[in-house]
Amino acid sequence: MADISHSNAASAGAANAGTEVQDKHAAAIALHKRRTRFGLLFWIPLGWLIIVAVAAIGAPFWGLPAPDEIDWAYLQSPPSEAHWLGTDVLGRDLLSRIIWGARVSLTVGFAAPAIGVGAGLILGMAAGYYRGWVDEVVGIAIDSWLAIPGLVVLLLFAVIFGGSLFMVCFSLGLLFIPTAARITRAATLNYAGREFVLAARALGASDFRILSKEVFPNIIWPLIAFILIDIPIAIVIEGSLSFLGLSVKAPTPSWGGIIAEGREHLSTAPWISLYPTLVMFVTVLSFNLVGDAIRRRLADVREGAI
């Protein structure tokens, strides 16, 4: 391993110290620019996400076979002219199934974090603003919620409420409540004691007015950052759930479901599992990359504003 101190590198050539200084200065500036400007690692994944989104929204119009249409001539066939990504054991077109599956993934990906953050926002603000017993009750609820593994909660809900898309979004959304509530509570605690809130209260503003006009605008940014992290997580969890066959009901294709169907045929028809796996991986990675870039940009903007 190289040295911790870096002092060697710093003094390596006393003779070329001048250029070294310039290099270091330039590197510092470049690093700063790399942090703030959107690079290829933002635009390429964003492009992919747009392609996936457009494909999913326009799914019925691309002239693809329906996702549940069986092509008897192509049972479990590898990628070909007729079926670009091949077919599954029942002769269903994989490309079509992946595109229709994207509808489920994207819907859940956006809806679940929105539901969770919305509910967490209300609970967290109430706990942080009113303190006392409200805080205590919300705290216990959050702790209890966190004590059960998320997937177990979802299994439970899946059994009890069945697998409609709405219920999947709803129960997945519940998973995001605890963290969202904690973030909101901490931020509310922080802002509720500040002068401008005290001043508003002294002027006779109602609690609702104070929370929506004074506190909310200040905690919106951490929550947006949180939603950005949650979108890929929601997609991954939905994938796990549908892999277990406990997400949307059977004829509706979903990524996890397709992967699970192909698992039995991994040795004879690996493409059935591998293509949706690849698509899902790239999509989740893209969400992570785009989210990361935006969050860093947000942080920079806010640092700059202060």
Partner: peptide
């Protein structure tokens, strides 16, 4: 690490089975 978190365990499992077992 970034690639790893984008890869849920069931997908990793499928790939590992495909590669190391099959």
């Amino acid at each position: 690490a970034f690639a790893s978190v984008s890869m849920p365990s069931f997908m990793t499992a499928i790939l590992l089975i495909y590669f190391f077992s099959l």
